[in-house]
């Protein structure tokens, strides 16, 4: 993207991977994977994170800069940092049949509308 002349900014919650990959501009939020722009149904916090990201977009002037935002997932419970992305962390995947049934249901729902 950058080589094609388009400036980029990448959110991240994985600091070590981002340091290895070195994207042009990155904004780090120390939240569990799957919440890079905030927890569900908290529009205020999500808006603050995305607004901060847009500010960082303008502020970063040298390649591979990582801006770390100060947001804390839960000040009273940091156990997610021990369990995130470890064995047993993913919910059990539905069977192939169950997944196909869910997909068929989704397709049918939007075809009806």
């Amino acid at each position: 993207m950058e080589e094609a002349g388009i400036p980029t900014l990448c959110m991240t919650s994985a600091l070590d991977i981002t340091r290895s990959v070195k994207p042009p501009r990155a904004v780090f939020v120390n939240f569990p994977l799957g919440h890079q722009t905030g927890p569900p149904n908290q529009p205020e916090l999500q808006r603050r994170i995305v607004t901060d990201a847009m500010r960082a977009f303008a502020a970063i002037s040298s390649p591979a800069t990582i801006v770390e935002l100060p947001y804390v997932w839960d000040p009273n419970d940091r156990t997610w940092e021990d369990t995130d992305y470890t064995k047993g962390w993913m919910p059990v995947a539905p069977s192939r049949e169950a997944a196909d049934a869910l997909e068929a249901e989704r397709q049918a729902k939007f075809r009806r509308e």
Binding site: G34, H35, Q36, T37, P40, N41, P43, Q46, V50, M90
Partner: peptide, 25 residues
């Protein structure tokens, strides 16, 4: 997605796809 627990994103896609937030901005 098979690589992260998608429950919260299913409840509110703005967790990983902040479409409504970007429209507000």
């Amino acid at each position: 997605h098979f690589g992260y627990p998608t429950g919260d994103a299913e409840r509110d896609a703005n967790c990983v796809f902040p479409l409504e937030r970007m429209r507000e901005l």
